[in-house]
């Protein structure tokens, strides 16, 4: 139903012997906030450089807005990106730097510059020279550049690098706002899973150039969330007891032998007692759920 913004097909990049990207297959749909997670050197930046034509692929293909990768000049107009370190002219101010690019892109309305600067929170420092900026401010200017010309798809390479917690939170709100109000699709890379978790609806875990896993937020929640796992053969009876006696509908029947309860997380003994009182045959009952980090570590290990 949703238009596919980016689709890669066995995308590979080799530097002599070193394989930076190994048959990467992923797909981003319109309206997604797609989190690309990987350790340093996993290939996130390489991937982003290839899809923005800054770097040439070795093998495989990709399509951007349905256009093949040898025919992208017009399509690149719809993208805004911040890749690696934000690079701007040191002796120009933020406004003048953006003005330079506005002239380049042929932007007709110069108000877009001020709007972009305001959205990223740089209004106070906008007339100071770029070389005086802190890392966080440089990062913000990079993001302002990415959103300057009404893009449909923005690609951000570790955008929260160097930002303090308040800055990170402001950026998070900005991403959500851009995604909801202007229907902008966003690809963000990071090595911090927790941060990406708060904004993204889809994730892709990449390690040593390979895609280990592509997963939606709902699936991630399921695999990670804290819950009480009730293993029993009498799942329907347990369901009724949960609703009538424990007054909760917050459970899920996984299969014939497993129910996961997302309530009473502090009080699993009460659940235990109630079930036993009702003569339920419990095979086992335990608390489950892992942190995102642990999940990430497990996936990487499995991928090896």
């Amino acid at each position: 139903m949703n238009e596919i913004i980016l689709k890669t097909n066995n995308l590979t990049k080799k530097y002599k012997e070193f394989i930076a990207l190994d048959n990467v297959n992923l797909s981003i749909s319109k309206g997604d906030i797609y989190g690309l997670i990987g350790r340093n050197g996993a290939g996130k930046t390489t991937l982003m450089k290839i899809i923005t034509t800054l770097s040439n692929k070795t093998a495989g293909e990709f399509e951007l807005f349905g256009k093949k990768d040898n025919n992208l000049t017009e399509t690149k107009r719809r993208i805004g990106c911040l890749i690696e370190n934000p690079a701007f002219f040191p002796n120009l101010s933020a406004v003048n730097n953006l003005k330079y690019y506005a002239i380049q892109k042929g932007i007709v309305d110069n108000k877009q510059i001020d709007e972009a600067i305001e959205l990223v929170g740089l209004s106070e420092a906008k007339n100071k020279k770029f070389k005086t900026y802190s890392l966080g401010m440089k990062q913000r200017l990079g993001i302002a550049f990415a959103i300057l010309d009404n893009p449909d798809f923005i690609i951000l390479d570790e955008p929260i690098n160097g930002l303090d917690p308040i800055g990170i939170s402001e950026l998070r709100d900005l991403f959500k706002k851009l995604n909801l109000e202007k229907n902008i699709t966003i690809l963000i890379s990071s090595h911090i899973l927790n941060e990406l978790y708060q904004v993204s609806n889809k994730f892709c875990i990449i390690e040593k150039g390979k895609v280990i896993k592509e997963i939606t937020k709902e699936q991630l929640d399921e695999e990670c969330s804290k819950c009480i796992v009730i293993k029993t053969n009498e799942t329907s009876k347990v369901a009724v007891i949960l609703e009538e006696q424990l007054k909760t509908k917050n459970y899920k029947i996984i299969d014939n032998t497993e129910i996961r309860l997302y309530d009473y997380l502090e009080n699993s003994s009460k659940v235990n007692k109630t079930l036993i009182k009702n003569d339920i045959d419990i095979i086992s009952l335990y608390e489950s759920g892992i942190t995102l980090e642990d999940y990430f570590k497990t996936i990487i290990k499995e991928g090896k």
Binding site: L54, T73, K76, R77, I79, E84, F88
Partner: peptide, 18 residues
Amino acid sequence: CVDLSDSTAKNTLSSAIS
């Protein structure tokens, strides 16, 4: 040289220019 060495060229080349 400034554009290529300081990486500002990547901003230009990732937009609509061949």
